[in-house]
């Protein structure tokens, strides 16, 4: 009998604890459905909460409530997705602007591309060059990149600043087949 009293006693404390926690959470942030109902009809009133039955029920099923807290613990926030950057391992040969532009001339027999370096991406290329330092050194790069949910092959050209790869212009970005 004493175990039953102990069980119910702990349950009562847990029940009160849960009810107070719930009331605080409700006061801080009412459910969105209630906020919406209030916005649609200013006369609308939320249903009255009956605390006594809540405490009594909680007193009986408190082990399950404690288990729920454990299960419902906020998960560790996921690490932010790494952003792609060209590293020294990705670097290929050095090229001048003239050489890069000569390599990226696009020809189409139907004339469906402008006769300028990088074709339809010429404006993006010009924008990239404007941001680079005058007389900057450029290298070609090629990298296999895991974007988190798929692997990609990325190629292009990168500006070298103080010996380190910096801004880059991508010319190829393709999904690699799954292994």
């Amino acid at each position: 009998m004493s175990y039953l009293y102990l069980y119910l006693g702990i349950g009562l404390l847990v029940g009160i604890g849960f009810s107070v926690r719930g009331a605080r959470a409700y006061a801080k942030a009412p459910p969105i459905t209630e906020v919406a109902a209030q916005a649609l009809d200013p006369d609308w009133q939320p249903p009255k909460r009956r605390w006594l039955p809540l405490i009594l029920v909680s007193s009986l099923i408190w082990p399950m409530l404690l288990l729920l807290i454990l299960v419902d613990r906020p998960l560790k926030p996921a690490a932010p997705m790494p952003e792609f950057a060209v590293t020294s391992q990705h670097l290929q040969e050095a090229l001048s602007v003239v050489e890069m532009e000569a390599r990226e001339r696009v020809f189409d027999p139907l004339g469906a591309v402008p006769d300028v370096p990088f074709g339809h991406l010429n404006t993006a290329w010009q924008d990239f060059l404007v941001q680079c330092e005058e007389g900057a050194e450029f290298r070609r790069f090629a990298a296999d990149w895991d974007s988190g949910w798929r692997r990609e092959r990325r190629e292009g050209y990168v500006e070298i600043v103080q010996g380190q790869p910096g801004r880059f212009f991508m010319t190829v970005c393709k999904t690699l087949p799954e292994e």
Partner: peptide
């Protein structure tokens, strides 16, 4: 997207499957 190309654009930027 491609001003001056109302009928046909060669997809030279696309590599992949």
């Amino acid at each position: 997207v491609f001003r001056g190309y109302p009928e046909r654009v060669f997809a030279h930027w696309y590599s992949g499957r």
